[in-house]
Computed example of a mutant assay.
Amino acid sequence: MSSLGVPPFEEQEKENMSITKEVKASDATAQKMFSEGTLVEVSSDDDGFEGAWFAATIVKAVGKDKFLVQYQSLRTDDDSGFLREEFDTLHIRPCPPETLVVDRFSLFEEVDALYNDGWWVGVISKVLGGSKYLVYFRDTDEEIEFKHSDLRPHQDWIDGKWIMASQALMKCFTCDCLRNQERIPCVPGEIALHLKDSASCSSGSQLMIF
Rank of each mutant, 00 (worst) to 15 (best):
E110C: 12
C177D: 13
P153L: 03
G130P: 05
D139W: 00
T140R: 09
H148W: 07
S106V: 11
Y115R: 05
R152E: 03
F173V: 15
S131M: 10
E145Q: 13
H154Q: 06
D150L: 12
V127Y: 02
K171H: 08
K126L: 05
H148D: 03
C177L: 04
T174K: 14
S166M: 11
D141F: 09
G122Q: 00
E145C: 11
K161Y: 03
K147P: 03
D156W: 13
C172F: 15
Y136E: 08
F146E: 02
G129R: 08
F173S: 04
G160C: 06
Y115T: 09
K126V: 12
A113D: 02
I163N: 09
G118R: 03
D117H: 05
K161M: 03
E145S: 09
I158N: 01
F173R: 08
P153T: 07
Q167Y: 13
G160W: 12
F137V: 11
D156R: 10
K171N: 07
R138C: 09
C177P: 00
L151S: 01
I124H: 02
N116V: 13
K161Q: 05
D176M: 06
D139I: 10
C177N: 09
D141H: 11
K171W: 07
I124Y: 03
M164V: 12
K171S: 06
G130L: 05
S166N: 10
V121P: 11
D139Y: 01
D103Y: 09
T174C: 13
E142W: 08
L134V: 12
V121K: 04
E109N: 02
V135L: 02
D117M: 10
L107T: 08
R138Q: 08
V123K: 00
Y133Q: 02
D117K: 14
L151M: 01
A165L: 03
S166A: 10
M170G: 07
D103T: 14
S149H: 09
Q155N: 04
G122W: 00
D139P: 00
